[in-house]
Design a protein around this nucleic acid. Structure first.
Lengths: 335, 335
DNA sequence: GGGTTTCCCAAAAACGTTTTCGGAACATAA
DNA sequence: TTATGTTCCGAAAACGTTTTTGGGAAACCC
């Protein structure tokens, strides 16, 4: 089981130091000797012990993607998680650096600090996705000093970076679109109030309205899920019919789909009686009928960029510490 | 940066051995001493070095979830991956064992054997998802001897287990349903020919037909994606209209959705002119109009069960080595 | 043929733990 | 008082690497 460098050395008739050098591409070693060592190693099925490598300082320390609250918010926006992962892992494969993915609950974060987690796993740094201001790592990371890149939530710190979307601008833009299509009484169906992005999106929404001399017809908060928002929209429409808001600007595609369902079930037509917009660019939004106008966050690019930034920070290279990935407005018939 | 056990020992005025014992809950140590040590450790911000721990034998070896071909088949069935991960990670959190997730391409698998990967990362075992018969690990794992649980592809080996779905039965059942709804000329739109599951599904399809004294009207192969299958269905319908197959049994929901689109674009109505069934139980299938009849594989349960089985194998406990997770047929208006 | 390089390799220290072994200090029993 | 346990802790070996240091042998130069 445990075939070590010592065994290889013995088999090849050299010292362990030589074996080590042979493996690490040093030049001061005869080709003949190296070949013999490599051959012996292969024969014995030798695998360098990473722990030992790390201990001795020379370590191939990898990086991590930490999914915060992945288990709790399940179903939330799986597609976004996956896209982000795709982007990050793609960078890893391109650059030949390894990324391990961990899911850490709020409880786990409380048990062990960010630094401790990295140290324990010999990680050079981590990118964190899904973090909330109420999570333990939120404070942790600011004071940490360890390389870290946050996605979609900004924290300042010595070695921390941020990759996100200009939520404010995106939301202003999509609200503009709704207004330009003729709507005047517009409601915002936002996500959880305490979420940072929701704050920004709301601001974008309000600023767009103000620019056009309008005021919000209604602002409601819901979880990022279909059922709850559907119920909310159902109640709203039942109570007001078309006398109040005629357009629903939603903070996510899931919310938007819930609203669409409610509109249909109330006997109205999406895109005709009521306008609906979403946010995220989920595939479902496009398959819905009519497709709902939304904003694609380019999550894959975000993941890629975050990985890249983290890598740069880890390697001590100069790099931008804040990056806003361009978004794409997808205009369809829901408005 | 590097505050080691030695520093703690010095600060607390004891030897390193004592510090180690204090941390590992040994009894032969005075409470007073232990407290002092813990206090010093906290003060210094001491974090035990996991590499060193492993080296010295006493190690908290964790397990891994390996995603094979995650980057290549992107978009394929993200939802299934996520659900599987949810299940596996949930088991991990419940049992307080850590699962790290890695994505390994075919190339990476060729570079480094399964055993080597585990050894290098000090992993006690791994569950593998998305493996194809053409992947290097496919042979690798059989001869490995390391704890491993495969999802959806069966390999026999000393310490390897399998968790899957009874694809044959499921497919026979959904085909039965189509036949019972009155269709007689039925086509199969299968996935890639070399995939194990596709073989099984096809067999289930054919067996159901045979049972009812029917023969396949058509069997076609496509990638598991929407666009390609849509094109294929388009061509087929354009050529034959309703004169040949009137029902399309598809090996995945993505394929089914492509077929639905083709039907609609050809001016026919899904569920009336043509019947369509899928496989996977994706959310999109349910949101489509009409919702497509499909089979939910209960991917989350699969992930959970696989993690559980792996854990048992790693711990040397007795456990079933083959597990078929019950599926759920979801009948909707597409047939 | 003596001095200088150059090339290759062995020996050993270092990394941060765990664990075994033994011994000091103290308490108890005879 | 001596013998016998107990309780607590220090010293040191071991884990598998990397890296530094030093030196022997071969090759080169005059």
């Amino acid at each position: 089981m445990a075939v070590s460098i010592r065994d290889v050395a013995k088999a090849a008739g050299v010292s362990i130091g030589t074996v080590s050098r042979a493996f690490n591409g040093y030049s001061d070693i005869k080709d003949e000797t190296r070949d013999k060592i490599i051959r012996s190693a292969k024969e014995l099925g030798y695998v360098p012990n990473l722990s030992a490598k790390m201990l001795s300082g020379k370590a191939h320390r990898s990086m991590a993607v930490i999914l915060s609250g992945f288990m709790v918010d399940r179903g939330l926006t799986e597609e976004l998680v996956i896209k982000m992962l795709h982007g990050a892992l793609e960078y890893g494969q391109e650059q030949n650096v390894e990324f391990a993915v961990y899911a850490l609950s709020s409880d786990q974060q409380r048990e062990k600090s960010f630094d401790q987690f990295l140290a324990e796993h010999s990680l050079a740094g981590a990118m964190v996705f899904g973090l909330k201001t109420s999570d333990a790592y939120y404070e942790n990371i600011a004071t940490s000093g360890a390389p870290c890149v946050l996605v979609d939530i900004e924290i300042k710190g010595e070695k921390v970076g941020f990759v996100g979307t200009d939520d404010h601008a995106a939301f202003a833009e999509i609200t503009d679109l709704v207004i330009e299509s003729g709507h005047r009484r517009i409601a915002l169906f936002n996500g959880r109030k305490q979420a940072k992005v929701c704050e920004l999106r709301q601001k974008g929404f309000l600023d767009s309205l103000k620019k056009h001399g309008l005021k919000a017809e209604e602002i409601a908060y819901t979880d990022f899920n279909l059922d709850q928002s559907q119920q909310m929209a159902m109640d709203y429409i039942k109570e007001n019919g078309k006398t109040k808001a005629t357009a629903f600007v939603c903070a996510s595609d899931l919310i938007a789909l819930g609203v669409c369902n409610a509109i249909r079930k109330s006997g109205y037509v999406v895109g005709k009686d009521f306008a609906v917009t979403g946010f995220d660019g989920l595939r479902i939004a496009n398959l819905s009928d009519p497709a709902v106008t939304t904003v694609d966050q380019n999550m894959e690019k975000k993941g890629y960029a975050a990985a890249q930034m983290l890598h740069a920070i880890v390697e001590g290279k100069e790099t931008e510490r804040k990056l806003l990935i361009p978004y794409t407005v997808l205009k369809y018939d829901s408005i």
